[in-house]
Design a binder for these strands. Structure first.
Lengths: 190, 190, 190, 190
DNA sequence: TATGAATGAGAATTCATTCAT
DNA sequence: GATGAATGAATTCTCATTCAT
């Protein structure tokens, strides 16, 4: 799987031949098929392996946090943090996946991920922690897109890993402030 | 080109055969090559045709607007408005383009577009209309990503066109508030 | 199709590569697929082309003959005569066809051919021209098998074409005498 | 070998994978190769195992019979009787064997079997028990073919085992009468 | 003896592109 | 300009066979 990430990331899904991956992994072509039924399923496996970590995190740790803003912040840090140490994985997640039509159109984990974000926003709206004049669904997509776009340009660029962490913090600043309820908490006048 | 948009959008770049496009356009396969040097250049042409409109708009009309928030708002409306009436084009722009590795990695118009947004943000920061504690580059990528994510889910979904317009407004609300300088303009206490 | 007969006959169905046929035909591999959807369908086409001649003959000319023995004799001459000039075709019909499991198990023309023979035998039995103590179905299969076995060994051997004609006559002698009604027509005593 | 017969008969030679046979036999793939050097040799072994019984019978018991007609009758009963209880074996012998090009073209046992039949016919012709105006070689091939065709259609069909025994008797009736010497025993003219 | 994971050669089929008409 | 028949390179996946355990 590591060899596959490496080759997919550098050549793209369609440009990558199974024999490329096999050579990178130091095994024979046929050996790949002992573990993955097809080239596409191999790509799916790469993603599921990582996205399942994201989902597990969201189900296990995120609910422990006190309020919606903190939870969103945690998701943002998580989504970009997962990619920070591994630019190739970031390229897989942001670009390569879209090269397989089937994947992006039917990916159940993608939908589950969006739904989880949307749910957190709804809860925040009900508790008054987040503004209610915005559709939770739209906000979830905007958050996902902002993070995805950030990861995309980082993956394609030459910036160092730390740059992604800094970007994550700033994107979080923008989005969370953008979602704060009106009026912003005012310093109480003397 | 219209036939190409239709077929690319419904089947994806790699699943689309030149003969599919030719049949949809009512011409022979070879005729395609009288107008486009290759399949990939055909896809490039589709994009350039549209993105050049975006860029022209940004260079001609956006500068006329009074301040940075209004300019960003105009770009947001423009980017999503362009796609609103044409879900197939939206699918091309958000998904299909990424299916051609070369396109997303080298697209000069894509970079130019990001740069233009970044430039507007920088001007807003200098004039104090936008917060300065955020990297203009990061903010530009976040804006683009948020819009792209919104268009992506809209293109893949079954929502009506008006939904994209509503989403555009709300995404603008989030991002613009998120980029407002601290402290937010306070209502003067009585 | 002629190139395919030649290559199939000399190498067998499974040992023959499409590229072998293409080279023998002087065209590119892909050209084959402009005319035949698959390798197996190519083999089917070869057969249908010839077997349909047999069936047409049986439906058009055989009924004109006066009696069952003559009709059977005509079929025997026809079945082997078709192959006489073309040992390669004979090899296709007797051997290669059985190399494609689907072909021999489902071939509708094969069944139709057997049925036609059986029908002639039944008529001969009813008219008293052929013995009635034999199942028409069994007799039809025996006739077909005897002809097929004769063609098979001829195709595999080195005998000249005329040998097949001679063999056809003798096989006919055996089968027709074997099917004569008991007692054999005796010269009426004065 | 029993597992191989079962799987070969139901899927055909080329459609059968060694692992299918191994699974059916309850052993590992590699174990097959401890007993058979290759897939093709496994098929050959199946045949030799049975055909050798036929040949042994022909060399040991057939010569004991009094005359050529009885001997041919015994061979017919034997060839079809061997298959009667085992439709899968019949399918192997009549169809599957022809799927391996090499087998049918070079099979020494097949030739030996035909020669043995031919030899019996020659002896019958010399003794006047069989008609002499027919080539013994042609007659042998016709007999073999008739039996093979009968077994083939029986193996492919759904008829019960007893049907093959009945068919054997009738095919024998046809062939033996067809081979009787001319003139048929006539009532002595006055 | 038995295993079964690993091998890697092999082939049918697709489709972007060309070019004679 | 338009055609569309022909091209042929390119690649996934299969499976008979091996051999270290």
């Amino acid at each position: 799987m590591r060899a596959a990430i490496h080759v997919f990331a550098n050549h793209g899904y369609h440009q990558t031949r199974i024999s490329d991956i096999a050579r990178a992994a130091g095994v024979a072509d046929g050996t790949i098929y002992l573990y993955f039924p097809s080239k596409e399923e191999l790509l799916v496996s790469l993603l599921d392996d990582r996205v399942s970590k994201l989902l597990a995190f969201m189900q296990r740790d995120v609910p422990k946090l006190a309020n919606a803003p903190e939870r969103l912040r945690a998701i943002i840090d998580m989504q970009l943090g997962l990619l920070e140490g591994d630019r190739e994985l970031a390229e897989i997640v942001t670009i390569i996946v879209r090269q397989s039509s089937r994947l992006i159109k039917q990916a159940p984990t993608f939908v589950a991920y969006l739904d989880a974000i949307e749910c957190i926003i709804q809860q925040g709206q009900q508790s008054g922690e987040l503004r209610s004049d915005i559709s939770a669904s739209v906000a979830a997509r905007a958050i996902f897109g902002a993070l995805d776009g950030t990861a995309l340009t980082w993956a394609l660029g030459r910036a160092e890993p730390a740059a992604l962490a800094r970007a994550a913090r700033q994107v979080g600043d923008i989005l969370l402030r953008g979602l704060c309820p009106e009026p912003l908490p005012l310093p109480s006048p003397p």
